[in-house]
Simulated assay, not measured.
Amino acid sequence: MAPTRRITFELDTETVLRLVQQLEPDLVIKGFSRLEGGSTEVYKIDLADSGYESLVLKIYADKPEWLPKKEPLVAGYLRDLTVPVPTWLRVDESRSLLPLRYSLVTHVPGRSLRHWMSEPDIKQAYRQMGELLRHIHAIPMPAYGYLYGHGIDKPVLANEDYMTAAFEDVFRRFRDLSGDSDLARRLQQVAKGSFDLLSASDGPVLAHDDFHQGNVLAFRGKADRLELSGLVDFGNARAADRLFDLAKALFCSAHEDPRSYQPVLEGYGSVDHPDAERALWLYTLFHRVSMWCWLTKIGVGAEAEDGPGGLIRDLREMVA
């Protein structure tokens, strides 16, 4: 997963107070602390005598420039989800109070599911993950394409057109970054053998495209039961075939914990598709190549068994 981008300045209480008083001049802070995980700097701000109780400060790097506007857009799509998502209260790109852009959002209770993976009832939480993903996929989108702050960028009406272009792009990037034209050719050849399935999509839906234990929150609820309590981090979201996103969720979640694969799939439920298993295989191939390209681009060593090295091994097995 992505390393968190560290800010290069010290965040102090006086600055945080000025930030929250942009919302309400009378707000008083009790303290603030950095939250775990995420690809941006994220802080929890505890308030005194306020209806908010706590807020979250998200500080964005200069790139990607569209992220501060994209996340509140996607959160709006998810406002009726079965678990809470943050509400964006303020997006400030002026750099007048901080040298970087930031957002203030409502705090969602719970800790990332990574914190709970050693618990005896974790598999039940994984089934809840599958159920939650199915609810996300009940949100229809008007076309296929990547989401930016203004909506779908370069919308495409047919899944086969969208994914054929996406496969061509990811194989080109793989060839350029790896220099292994033979493996790239074999991957492309085996993928094309299942391209007939791309037309079987039942329409574009909202895809989180980064659905794993790090972005799902949970707490101990009634009867001490582990329950999902929130969903965060919408920077990767797009409009896609539901199986595209299910494959990414299974791939990323199983990377965190191999035990998650089957319960997430069970929680998601049956899929009306002529060959769902082969479609998941095809989309998994895409996600593995894409992940290899991304990890390699950000400088993760090819020898890392859980990084590019392990992904190359898996890709070779897929074309064996």
Rank of each mutant, 00 (worst) to 15 (best):
Pro25Arg: 12
Arg111Met: 12
Val16Arg: 09
Asp272Glu: 14
Gly299Asp: 08
Asp233Leu: 10
Val289Pro: 05
Leu27Ile: 04
Phe167Met: 12
Leu89Cys: 07
Ile139His: 12
Thr284Gln: 11
Arg288Tyr: 13
Asp202Ser: 15
Val16Gln: 07
Ala75Gly: 06
Arg185His: 10
Glu71Cys: 01
Ile152Cys: 08
Phe195Gln: 10
Lys30Pro: 00
Leu27Met: 02
Ser253Ala: 15
Phe171Lys: 00
Met117Tyr: 10
Pro3Ser: 06
Gln213Met: 15
Phe286Pro: 05
Arg6Val: 00
Tyr52Lys: 05
Ile298Trp: 08
Arg175Cys: 13
Gly309Asp: 02
Ala138Gly: 14
Ile122Arg: 15
Asp169Lys: 14
Leu315Asp: 11
Leu132Phe: 04
Leu100Pro: 00
Tyr52Met: 05
Gln188Cys: 06
Ala254Val: 02
Arg278Lys: 12
Ala158Trp: 09
Leu98Ile: 03
Phe195Tyr: 14
Ala249Tyr: 11
Ser50His: 08
Pro140Gly: 13
Glu24Thr: 02
Asp275Val: 00
Gly235His: 13
Val232Pro: 06
Glu41Met: 12
Ala143Glu: 12
His107Gly: 00
Ala165Ser: 11
Leu81Cys: 14
Ser33His: 08
Ser181Thr: 14
Thr106Lys: 05
Lys30Glu: 15
Pro86Trp: 10
Thr87Ile: 06
Thr82Glu: 08
Leu57Ala: 03
Ala304Thr: 13
Asp92Arg: 07
Leu206Val: 00
Leu133Phe: 08
Glu131Ser: 05
Gly235Cys: 13
Leu11His: 00
Ala249Gly: 11
Ala207Asn: 09
Gly203Leu: 11
Ile136Met: 11
Leu133Thr: 05
Leu98Asn: 04
Leu78Met: 15
Thr87Asp: 06
Asp314Thr: 06
Leu246Gln: 04
Leu67Phe: 10
Leu73Pro: 01
Phe171Tyr: 12
Leu132Tyr: 04
Gly269Val: 04
Asp224Thr: 08
Gly307Lys: 02
Gln22His: 01
Leu295Asp: 09
Lys154Phe: 07
Arg259Asn: 14
Leu27Asp: 02
Phe251Cys: 07
Arg186Ala: 13
Glu36Tyr: 01
Leu187Asp: 13
Phe167Trp: 15
Val108Gly: 13
Asp49Cys: 02
Lys248Trp: 01
Ser270Met: 02
Ile29Met: 00
Glu277Ala: 14
Asp209Phe: 07
Phe167Asp: 12
Pro64Thr: 04
Gly299Val: 10
Leu243Met: 11
Lys63Val: 12
Gln124Tyr: 09
Glu168Gln: 07
Asp257Lys: 00
Asn159Ile: 04
Lys248Arg: 11
Leu265Ala: 07
Ser96Thr: 09
Tyr261Arg: 15
Asp182Gln: 14
Glu168Ala: 10
His255Gln: 13
Leu57Lys: 04
Arg185Glu: 15
Val232His: 06
Thr284His: 06
Leu311Arg: 03
Glu303Gln: 10
Phe174Arg: 03
Ala279Cys: 10
Thr164Ile: 03
Ile152Asn: 05
